[in-house]
Computed example of a mutant assay.
Amino acid sequence: MKVNRSLLYLGALLLLSLAFFQIKGGLDQPNPSATSGKPTGAPFTLTSHQGEVSLSDFEGQLALIYFGYTWCPDICPTSMLFLAKAVNSLPDDLCDQLQPIFISVDPKRDSPERLADYVDFFEAGILGLTGEEDYLAKLAKQYGAFYRYVEIDSAMGYAVDHTSDFYLVNSSGKLLATLPHSISGEELQAVLIQALENQL
């Protein structure tokens, strides 16, 4: 039986569009009911090791955002390696149009300097940011992210349960896509390429 290549191509485009606009949730969602309403994203101003950084500083670019913390033993470093591989695999002209951002929700322990050292390890131009606890809580909710501090019996004192999704936004803070931790590298790269080409 001969397969119509045009139909296959249209089917692939449809699946990609669904991934771009509708992918939600992740493997590490401690409390899905904690966020209410449809997340829209939001503009923000946070702190890096070089001072204040606003999302609007990246006009004409897209940002790929992840909420986590540097003391995370497994999910965050795995996610950052995954993100770095996807970003570094992009064509050079598209890579320049994307700013990966790691937002720490543990400002008590994650100083801007510690964040800078942490993200530099992954060699993908990731920007490490943090801010005041109340501001971070509100911002995370606007993106549909959730986190909570959990006491543990160790020298660390506490851990942070958190969602492990990626959030793709434009420089005005509009949420374009929520990409789950379970997305494959090929799917993530395809979504990024489509979004970035649409920006050009």
Rank of each mutant, 00 (worst) to 15 (best):
Leu139Trp: 10
Tyr69Met: 01
Ile23Asp: 13
Val191Asp: 11
Gly11Pro: 02
Ala34Ile: 10
Leu7Pro: 00
Glu187Lys: 05
Phe58Glu: 09
Glu187Ser: 08
Ser182Trp: 07
Pro112Glu: 08
Leu27Phe: 07
Val119Tyr: 03
Pro43Ser: 14
Gly26Asp: 15
Leu192Glu: 10
Phe58Ser: 09
Leu179Gln: 07
Phe122Cys: 08
Tyr158Pro: 07
Ser48Glu: 08
Ala137Pro: 00
Gln194Leu: 08
Ser33Cys: 00
Ser33Asp: 14
Gly157Trp: 09
Ala19Gly: 13
Leu15Met: 14
Lys108Leu: 11
Leu18Gly: 14
Gly131Ile: 02
Pro107Phe: 12
Asp96Lys: 13
Gly157Asn: 12
Val169Pro: 06
Leu127Met: 11
Ile103Cys: 05
Gly131Leu: 07
Ser6Met: 13
Ser182Gly: 04
Phe146Cys: 00
Phe20Cys: 09
Thr163Asp: 11
Thr47Arg: 12
Arg148Ser: 14
Lys138Arg: 10
Asp134Arg: 00
Leu62Thr: 01
Val160Leu: 04
Tyr167Trp: 03
Phe67Cys: 03
Phe21Arg: 09
Thr40Pro: 04
Leu90Arg: 02
Asp120Glu: 15
Gln99Gly: 08
Phe44Pro: 02
Cys72His: 03
Phe122Lys: 07
Ile75Trp: 09
Asp134Gln: 09
Cys76Asp: 10
Gly173Asp: 12
Ala124Asn: 07
Val53Cys: 02
Leu15Arg: 02
Pro30Val: 00
Ala137Asp: 09
Leu179Asn: 05
Ala195Phe: 06
His162Thr: 12
Leu90Asn: 07
Asp74His: 03
Val53Glu: 06
Val150Leu: 05
Leu188Ala: 03
Gly131Met: 05
Thr35Ser: 07
Glu197Ile: 01
Ser164Thr: 08
Arg148Val: 11
Gly185Phe: 00
Met80Asn: 06
Gln99Ala: 03
Pro91Ser: 09
Arg5Leu: 13
Thr163His: 09
Glu187Val: 04
Ile65Tyr: 01
Asp153Leu: 07
Leu94Phe: 06
Phe82Ile: 03
Ala177Ser: 15
Ser56Asp: 13
Lys174Asp: 15
Gly26Cys: 15
Gln22Cys: 10
Val191Asn: 11
Leu188Trp: 01
Ile126Tyr: 02
Leu115Ser: 08
His162Ala: 08
Tyr167Pro: 02
Met1Ile: 11
Ala159Gly: 13
Phe67Arg: 06
Ser154Glu: 11
Phe121Ala: 15
Ala84Tyr: 07
Ser111Asn: 05
Phe67Lys: 07
Gln29Thr: 12
Thr178Val: 15
Ala42Tyr: 08
Leu168Asn: 11
